[in-house]
Design a protein around this nucleic acid. Structure first.
Lengths: 354, 354
DNA sequence: TTGTAGGCGTTATCAT
DNA sequence: ATGATAACGCCTACAA
């Protein structure tokens, strides 16, 4: 490497360095890279060689400033830990990459205030558009995005009447469907292990769905048949313990997520309660493990949501027409953990192990 | 809102707009926001009000261009789908947020070429530093980072002799330890269900660790006792099926990840093979489910790795002193799926179900 | 086809 | 304490 080259290489290489080495103007070097059709083959070659030699990487800040866009999109999820979010984010990132965008990821920890802050930060850091989870957010969040005309999309929920763009599914409808499945099997005493509903419309809606199914049959779901737990296996276990400790333990349990259902299943095993003979358990998500534990559950279209969210926002950024309300299908996957009730056994066992 | 205000608000608000409304110069407005100590209380107040009124968000591209840093750090992981990576990324993001940085996330799909491309893209999009998974990468990747003096850190591996910065653990040492545990229990015929080793040094090293443990006892692990499978539950099932179909089926199986172990366990259940009485199964990761399936496994310090990676890179970016080689502890968590062998039964069953 | 020059929005330097 | 001004690196009219 020549001395002169060395000297250049020691600093941060910019386009003018490339141009100097390629013996052309900066403007030409720029065109050689972004619009080769406007430049002679010879010069293009020289520029490419110079880029190679110097290890030039364009300065995105300068480019963004000039072009007024960053090719960055942000996503705010409650937590990355849940495999269901991870799947969606993964699909989102993959599609964005294909479309020429990069993904800034941040978490809200199921906290509206934090979600607002993190979204603002994402925008400050260059996000041109944002993917949100759920339908409820701090009103200031919507204001913030509207004031800056920043495209956004709500996922994991579907409530077009609220006037926001949605790509997702109706959580209440989904649990209503799964509850109806249990009611049809003959269950009358159903319990609910929900995730914490604070700042979490998905959890809230899922509980509401169970209540709706009850009401549709002219009944009411007793409040003491609902328990809120952290979204962990232990949360599921604790939830089931709680439900079984009530006066009238349920013969079937709707869980707000598969993780909770795994915990509930685990507690059944520990107690020697046979599933589904003595108690039915259903989940939500269709987690990878669900199939192997024969868990009856709702399949959530995580991958499709991620992909479509990417498509939507990029189309929006490019002023292409867009469908603001996309309801995706959730599917009840009936496996082996839900069956008609055998009340007596279930209750007897529950009382015994009390 | 006044007409004039409206007019300003219709465009993208910049600092000069704020300054105009606050009746001061752009420079003063800038200082009012970033170094309030240099500005009079009055002006600060006027500027803050103007910011509020106009909904001003700083243009990060301009700021980055001027300040020559972006406050963005990138991470390239093989896939987000694995909960173990998700945990680390989560911890990484949280710590980076505390330190004032945002996180660009991308995936390599266990492919060196793609890892190189994605890393380059991350840098183009403004990453000042990058977190990598594993110790082996395309040589060009190291060249690329070195040429631009971009700080990076290898995680999920530890091999200081290779001259790169590491925050992680020695995968070979870890499986060597877990294999010794099995050997000490009395097993002599051990099988391995590994993840695909192509472009994956963690998987490669984990297999190597089992071999080392064998050699330390003057034995050799037969090649046909090793099977590579995709990192899924089905991969684990297939792996176990394969191992049990060999001439001399193993009495214990080392799995390259908990997911594979779950699959192996599932296959045992399906065959009526009792664990650990008839066959021992051990995993790697300490996945949330592992405790509930009583899986003996290696605990990986995912959260600590994520946090320390953040600390390391930020310190490096700020020219603070830094420790380049941090070996984190992995811990053997002995639960219920590993016990002394009862050869005859295991082999008989295996042959029968053939 | 190529070169020149202005400006994207911000901050830091240098005056005042 | 404040204002004017230059510069960060790039792209794109405009001119040649």
């Amino acid at each position: 490497m020549s001395n002169r080259l060395q000297k250049i290489a020691d600093k941060n290489i910019k386009l003018s360095d490339v141009a100097r080495l390629a013996e052309c103007s900066t403007g030409t070097a720029s065109r050689a890279l972004s619009r080769p059709d406007m430049v002679s083959k010879e010069v293009i070659k020289r520029v490419q060689e110079a880029v190679e030699k110097l290890g030039y990487t364009p300065n995105n800040a300068a480019k963004s400033l000039r072009l007024r866009h960053t090719n960055i999109i942000g996503v705010v999820i409650p937590t990355i830990d849940h495999s269901i979010f991870a799947q969606a984010v993964s699909a989102l990132e993959n599609r964005l990459y294909q479309l020429g965008y990069s993904l800034l990821v941040t978490t809200s920890e199921f906290d509206f205030k934090r979600e607002l802050q993190k979204t603002q930060l994402l925008v400050e850091r260059g996000s041109e558009a944002v993917v949100l989870v759920g339908r409820m957010h701090d009103p200031k969040l919507y204001e913030f995005l509207a004031a800056r005309r920043i495209p956004y999309i709500n996922t994991y929920a579907y409530r077009p009447s609220e006037g926001h763009p949605f790509i997702g599914f109706d959580n209440a409808k989904a649990t209503r469907q799964i509850t109806e499945h249990l009611l049809t099997l003959g269950h009358t005493d159903i319990g609910v292990i929900s995730g914490m509903t604070k700042d979490n419309d998905r959890a809230t809606d899922r509980v509401a769905g169970v209540k709706e199914a009850y009401r549709a049959r002219g009944k009411e779901l007793p409040a003491e048949r609902i328990t809120e737990q952290p979204l962990t296996i232990d949360g599921g276990r604790d939830g089931l313990r709680y439900l079984l400790s009530r006066d009238k333990p349920p013969t079937a349990v709707v869980c707000g997520s598969d993780i909770l259902a795994f915990g509930a299943l685990s507690e059944c095993t520990a107690r020697g309660l046979r599933v589904p003979e003595e108690i039915s358990i259903v989940g939500f998500d269709d987690h990878e493990m669900a199939a192997h534990l024969r868990l009856t559950t709702m399949q959530v279209p995580a991958v499709e949501m991620g992909q479509r969210a990417a498509d939507y926002l990029v189309a929006k950024l490019q002023d292409r027409p867009v469908v603001d309300h996309v309801e995706l299908e959730v599917r009840l996957i009936a496996r082996g953990t839900a069956a008609p009730p055998k009340r007596k056994n279930a209750r007897a066992k529950a009382e015994k192990s009390q």
